[in-house]
Design a binder for these strands. Structure first.
Lengths: 239, 239
DNA sequence: CGCGTTCTTGATGGGGATCAAGGTGAGTGG
DNA sequence: CCACTCACCTTGATCCCCATCAAGAACGCG
């Protein structure tokens, strides 16, 4: 496997996310640092978890993108969520857990073993907040698929990605890297690649976004949020 | 408030579900019994949780149906999941949690305070398994909305309800009570009530189901599952 | 340069939305 | 016992968003 250089060179995004979510104690930071130091590369397209198979130890994405996905018997594919640096994989609390979805690497992926919260309540809280955020985004995805038009779905998903990539420092001024093809977007949003293409063009024509190579720029996120009716996401009250 | 008699007279469904999910120790059973003994009635249509508001103590549905729901600014409504007897409400682990969705009573509802797992690891495991199941069903809902046709969505949802109501003993031989209007079904499945009506008729014509008053009977669940391409749900391996 | 993947564009069709009336049944009050 | 009402279900006509089918064009890569 090649440790192919990526634009996500520094491990800071993971630390940044977990610290923002509450892992602020020295013990928690040291544990995360130690885990990141021995992180492993996983090549794109490899499965990290397979639906119905036992879940191993929980892991932490240090760099790259993954996705939770379900494949139907007839080959239809549905992405359930995208996993970004700082996100957790396979964090379960019941005994002998089985994966409820497959997790596949979308890019080459730097993955660490998530440190056990053990003595650090800060770390436990950060994991809990991360889980709550993940649930909130799953719910948003349900609303997108159930009640949004194609344009709204695309705009709303890009705003979610901006929001999440801002949390871990990977987005700057409405600009971020998206290693997704239009087909993958379609498989996330319940649309055909052809229609994704047309809707992206219409968003570009309206001046809402720029998409060159893998770089997406949202011109005016606040206005776009108004346009697609996006609601803010928050899972815990300020201290 | 009237303690309106319901078809769910006995508290057994809740106990049955939690016991099946792992709450098998005497301590766990006693704690659940004690909680159910002092359960309270909540009238239909009342909110048990409001999106964005602080989450109080976790609760346990003893009888009746509730739903997690999001309402959009323009009035569109999307049901995120249905909550049945034995399901938990507002079980969070981060400090100062905020509700990520509104929870509304669909029927008169008997609700207990969920006993803290405290000393009982059995109870903690049952809660964890319940949470994992809830996540698995959320993922299934995403697939339904993203990749299923209208007929498949309806059939798959009814099969899910049968599966869950079988777990707590409220379904017998493919038959169960569903206190939902066709409009509510539409708001869950991303369809209009008119189209739900037409698809239900077509399922009835095909001999797949019977729906009289609030009673639904699936004629041949296994065949229906094959027809709509439904996959089984499992979250932990047998001991 | 050749080749596969991805993006783009056009033409056509269908699944489900929308609009607009009825019909039905349970509860309510006279 | 029967009008009245309100919520829900049912049916028909029409429309449109998005799927489908089918080629090309552009791009990255060996």
């Amino acid at each position: 496997m090649t440790p192919s250089p990526t634009p996500y060179a520094l491990p800071q995004p993971t630390m940044r996310r977990l610290a923002t979510l509450g892992a602020t104690s020295d013990a928690a930071i040291a544990a995360i640092d130690a885990a990141i130091a021995v992180a492993q590369w996983v090549p794109a397209r490899r499965d990290l978890l397979v639906e119905g198979q036992p879940v191993g130890e929980p892991r932490l994405i240090v760099a790259g993108w993954a996705a939770r996905v379900r494949i139907l018997l007839d080959g239809r594919r549905q992405f359930l969520s995208f996993l970004l640096p700082g996100d957790l994989i396979g964090m379960c609390r019941q005994p002998r857990p089985l994966a409820v979805s497959t997790v596949v690497a979308l890019t080459d992926l730097l993955v660490a073993t998530a440190p056990a919260p053990g003595g650090s309540p800060h770390l436990a809280h950060a994991y809990a907040a991360s889980g709550a955020l993940e649930e909130a985004y799953l719910l948003s995805h349900i609303v997108r698929l159930g009640r949004f038009s194609a344009q709204e779905r695309i705009g709303d998903l890009l705003l979610e990605l901006l929001e999440r990539l801002t949390l871990n420092g990977l987005a700057i001024g409405g600009s971020f890297d998206v290693p997704l093809t239009q087909e993958m977007l379609g498989d996330s949003l319940g649309l055909t690649p052809v229609h994704v293409n047309r809707m992206l063009q219409s968003l570009r024509r309206d001046g809402d976004l720029l998409w060159r190579h893998t770089r997406v720029t949202l011109r005016d996120p606040v206005q776009l949020a108004r346009k697609v009716g996006r609601l803010p996401v928050r899972v815990s009250a300020p201290a």
